[in-house]
Amino acid sequence: MNIFRLFGDLSHLASILILIHKIQTSRSCRGISFKTQALYVAVFVTRYLDLLYAEHVSIYNTFMKLFFIGSSCYILYLMKVRFRPTQDPSIDTFRLEYLLGPSVVLALIFNYTFSFTEVLWAFSIYLEALAILPQLFMLQRTGEAEAITTHYLAALGAYRALYIPNWLYRYFSEGTVDPIAVVAGIVQTGLYVDFFYIYFTKVLRGQKFELPA
């Protein structure tokens, strides 16, 4: 554990708490892509069910895994049951097969061991890298977002960005490289570049998040 990874994980944790807070206080999931949230459940379940069979890593690791599975399922419940009328599928139109298909194919080709659990792990890594796309696509379509939604996305993007110095640190201190996680992680972080540009130049200066026409 190093400081980049710790702050990355905490940022990830914070992003989820921000999202739950947004939905509960506004009693609405307006502006949130259900597809992206459903993909995160798929990511967490496929990656963290290793709790059932893999070697124990640490209490921290176990707690975080349970938190991510539990909270992502809770968000789906909030969106599909509790605040269902506020969720608008007509603007959440990104095709899931464009993300699931390539993730399955990549996982079958690029994995560390051609075993069920390792292919599942690789699948979750590739899917996580792409899972934000329905949300960013929705943002693109509506052209604007509530400040709290942008804070959620910024915390999520910061988590990804912080994993990059974490890998550099691990490379120099432990000599370990996880090429699948690194390549997918860099792609994933790259997806946030446009968002971050607007977040820093507008939202953090008190302006509304609006995409240029």
Binding site: D9, D50, A54, V57, N61, K65, Y112, G175, T176
Partner: peptide, 10 residues
């Protein structure tokens, strides 16, 4: 270059 096992990152 070593293979991370178990996957210790989240």
């Amino acid at each position: 270059e070593s293979k991370p096992s178990p996957h210790d990152e989240l």
